[in-house]
Design a binder for these strands. Structure first.
Ligand SMILES: [Mn+2]
Ligand SMILES: [Mn+2]
Ligand SMILES: [Zn+2]
Ligand SMILES: [Zn+2]
Lengths: 158, 158
DNA sequence: TTATTGTTGCAACAAGGTTGCAAATTGTAT
DNA sequence: ATACAATTTGCAACCTTGTTGCAACAATAA
């Protein structure tokens, strides 16, 4: 089965089968289980970030319990295998962190762009507070974390 | 009853009673009803943004049905009387738009700072995408809206 | 192979929010 | 003041997203 691991950059295309998925789990220090392989399989084939419900539906026959899926997604996100992005509607989307891992670290604060049309989620460079904001921060605000989400139309949908 | 309408700026202090609340509702084109007066009364006396549950609790005796409260908050937010700010935990907080209305328009995109300690929500100046982001946008992304939330410690809690 | 530890499925629960509808209330026109 | 149309309210039922506790089960390491 042929799939594109990096849909947004369209740089590398690889064969993915059980073997690859197992080693991916290994690489992130996760035990290899049937449920995790199935969930990872779904994520790896999706160019867009999926909701819990989306994933459950895409699993079809091979479905898991919904709680197991929540727990699986948590462990994937905790170890950095996937990222978890909040939507406008206050629910979560999950996707392989498929940008260039060197330029877009999973754990650092970075912005996400969500396309109103195709719903694709893009990682954007880290936010650098502009001058005005820096002024505000100097007035006695100290920053611990931030969430920056951009909505609009992506290059593919223009 | 003496309350401070603008807690964050601490600029003007006014008497608020039924009369003022009614005219505030009028000003925003809303029918004056008992429920709205009661909800507005709670919001007007709070220096911090409140959740639906907070408001219900603060209404005590004079409580309304929870659905009525949701609907009331929606109409307040729709007409710009209050603003509705998402928290990290994916729930909503409601507060009078009590910054300087000239510098911080309700409807424009602006950032919110939420204090981890006191939970106060501050409106911050509009976000100006930094250079890197502008580059990304020029690459074919077009921006329609954004949500920018900052978390940390506010001046009052230092 | 077995022991240890992490993972799964199930049922029950919880928060936050919405829908449909009948009854009550508001603003307005007479 | 009265009547009317249009909104608003309360209630019950429902929905979505996500969590908890627990017993059974499976993956790894010794
Ligand atoms: Mn990301
Ligand atoms: Mn605001
Ligand atoms: Zn798109
Ligand atoms: Zn504070």
């Amino acid at each position: 089965m042929r799939i594109c691991l990096s849909h947004s950059s369209l740089k590398l295309t690889v064969m993915i089968h059980d073997r690859e998925l197992r080693s991916l789990l290994h690489k992130f220090g996760l035990k290899v289980t049937a449920a995790r392989l199935r969930v990872l399989g779904v994520l790896v084939h999706s160019p867009v970030a999926l909701s819990h419900r989306d994933i459950l539906e895409k699993m079809g026959e091979q479905t898991t319990d919904k709680v197991t899926l929540y727990r699986t997604l948590h462990s994937f996100a905790d170890c950095g295998l996937i990222h978890k992005v909040a939507t406008k509607e206050r629910s979560w989307r999950y996707a392989l962190h498929n940008g260039d891992p060197d330029t877009i670290p999973h754990d650092g604060d970075h912005a996400h762009f969500i396309c109103d049309i195709c719903e694709r989620i893009y990682c954007m460079p880290a936010v650098i507070p502009d001058q005005k904001q820096q002024v505000e921060l100097k007035r006695g605000f100290s920053l611990r974390s931030e969430e920056y989400r951009l909505h609009g139309t992506c290059p593919q949908c223009h």
